[in-house]
């Protein structure tokens, strides 16, 4: 797979190291010549010095031959410009961007970028998962936000505590994928009986997520 990466810093370095070990062929665009030299000494990748939002630079990097483009500069506006030019001018199928503003994850998707990730949102979500103060935690959105992966903690008042999965009428397009009890995960079957204190990982479509959460927690 040919991947074009625009950006710099340690993020790009470690991303590239991971991608190279997977056998991807990489081109990196960076506007700082010293950083280009640093990357070139350490990575088996094509390094191009220039502004990745510049059409001509993208063309010189062979944007039209790449399978995916990854825009990870520190500026949301630059990452959007990179993805849009790659998509519209060079017909790149997969455009991925890193964003600072968590709101821009959804905004970028609406504007046609395949996927946008906010490090702020990811870190917030990880902290929530680790500290576990919340009963309902949105984990990662899958399939470009069309599938939700949510963690739900069952309290004593939960209407499903003490009931077997097969007795629970889950709405269509939803699934209880993992039950974690006392720190050990179980992949549940129909006979699995839920208990207060269980942490469930639930897969739903966004439109029925509300109903599923209500069914499991009794509230909200």
């Amino acid at each position: 797979m040919n991947v074009l990466i625009v950006g710099g810093g340690k993020v790009v370095y470690f991303l590239c190291r991971a991608f190279i070990s997977k056998g991807y062929s990489l081109t990196i665009v960076n506007r700082d010549s010293a950083e280009c030299a640093w990357l070139a000494r350490r990575l088996k990748a094509v390094i191009v010095h220039g502004d990745g939002t510049d059409l001509q630079i993208l063309e010189e990097c062979g944007a039209e031959r790449c399978d995916a483009i990854l825009a990870v500069t520190g500026h949301d506006q630059d990452n959007l410009a990179i993805c849009q030019q790659a998509r519209i001018r060079f017909n790149v199928q997969r455009t991925l961007a890193m964003v600072n503003d968590p709101d821009n994850e959804e905004v970028f998707r609406k504007l046609g970028v395949s996927a946008a990730f906010s490090t702020t949102r990811i870190i917030t979500s990880l902290i929530e998962q680790r500290t576990g103060f919340e009963d309902i935690i949105n984990l990662v959105p899958l399939e470009e936000g069309k599938v939700n992966l949510t963690e739900v903690v069952l309290r004593d008042i939960s209407p499903v505590a003490g009931r077997a999965l097969s007795d629970i009428a889950l709405p269509e397009n939803s699934l209880i994928a993992i039950v974690t009890r006392n720190g050990s995960p179980i992949i549940p079957r129909g006979g699995t009986v839920l208990a207060a204190g269980d942490r469930l990982v639930v897969i739903t479509l966004p439109e029925n997520m509300g109903r599923v959460i209500k069914l499991l927690t009794g509230g909200r």
Partner: peptide
């Protein structure tokens, strides 16, 4: 900044 203009304009038009 061209890219700021491009982004703000797209959001205004599309979103």
């Amino acid at each position: 900044n061209d890219n700021v203009n491009l982004m703000a304009a797209q959001i205004a038009a599309t979103v």
